[in-house]
């Protein structure tokens, strides 16, 4: 029972961290129509930024500034937002595909930096000893996980409310108008682009924050956490939830994560050892197929507002 409670809190925390990323993606795609295939990259930038800022000093690595976690979070948002802004500035005056390709490249390069810039990122082994909030109660799993869940839920709620507010603000209305009416966007020209860069950067910052939150939640990060699969998962979450809806983004994250974890546990239990890797591959096939099926049959998702177009 205790285990279950503790696991439930842990599960929800992870799902809500995905929820934060998905909220960031919803700002970029759902509200503004900007396609990001490098989610894992922006998420990783946030995680590493915060880790480098907050970990205690170590001998063979730059960083280890030992700063407070809150500073790490802010740094994560700033750096991921900056990376997103640069990506946007480079591509948003061009056709939409260029943004997609560039974000894909960002994820590739971030992965390389994580693996190879050992002096900064610790290389394949990543960064350990990232300060965890409530480390003092780590030996009481239920309490520890519950407190962490509260933090994650708090951040999710804060981002959710902020995005709801933003999307109703004049700023959000401009973004929506820009995505619905390409001609208006063109006639606004430069300023349309600047709105889009802002939205893309803000979405990137939210993803970076999610990365930081997760890094402090698990206390240890490595390049393997940030593979392209993560990007797929987040897209699946947004599409299931219904792009354009912040509520859908969070619900979609929980549902997809539950399916993912559930099917993973099922294969672990049912599939013989030497087939496990193959079964895991099949799990990813399923997500890819699901994404395509949703695009074909239910582009508005399952929890979003019922709208004709997406």
């Amino acid at each position: 029972m205790i285990d279950l409670l503790s696991y439930g809190a842990f599960f929800l925390s992870t799902a809500l961290i995905f929820g934060i990323i998905t909220l960031g993606l919803n700002l970029q795609w759902g509200l503004t129509g900007l396609f990001n295939v490098g989610i894992a990259g922006f998420f990783a930038i946030g995680a590493y930024a915060s880790a480098i800022l907050t970990t205690p000093e170590v001998a063979d690595r730059i960083g280890g500034f030992g700063l407070p976690i809150a500073v790490g979070w802010l740094g994560a948002m700033a750096l991921a937002g900056l990376a997103a802004a640069i990506t946007g500035i480079a591509t948003l005056r061009l056709k939409a595909d260029y943004l997609a390709i560039t974000t894909f490249g960002v994820a590739v390069v971030v992965q390389l930096v994580m693996l190879n810039a050992e002096a900064l990122t610790g290389g394949p082994f990543g960064v350990a000893f990232i300060p965890r909030p409530f480390a003092g109660v780590q030996d009481q799993p239920v309490l520890f996980n519950a407190l962490n869940l509260m933090v994650v839920a708090g951040v999710t709620l804060a981002i959710y409310l902020a995005l709801e507010h933003l999307s109703r603000s004049p700023w959000g209305r401009v973004l929506r108008a820009l995505r619905e009416d390409e001609r208006a966007a063109i006639s606004l020209g430069k300023s349309a682009r600047s709105y889009r860069v802002q939205a893309f950067a803000a979405g990137g910052a939210v993803m970076g924050l999610a990365g930081a939150v997760q890094a402090h939640f698990i206390g240890f990060i490595a390049p393997d956490n940030y593979l392209p699969t993560l990007t797929f998962q987040v897209w699946a979450m947004l599409m299931v939830g219904g792009s354009g809806s912040n509520r859908g983004a969070v619900l979609g994250s929980i549902v997809v994560w539950a399916i993912w974890v559930g099917s993973g546990a099922a294969t672990a239990a049912l599939v013989p050892g030497d087939w496990q890797a193959r079964a895991a591959a099949l799990q990813i096939v399923a997500i890819g197929v699901m994404l395509c099926l949703i695009l074909l049959w239910r582009p508005q998702g399952f929890f979003g507002p019922r709208r004709g177009r997406m």
Binding site: W235, A281, I284, V285
Partner: peptide, 12 residues
């Protein structure tokens, strides 16, 4: 986006 989903399914 669909090509992205298809890519993942094909590769896996």
């Amino acid at each position: 986006m669909a090509s992205f989903g298809a890519s993942m399914a094909l590769r896996s």
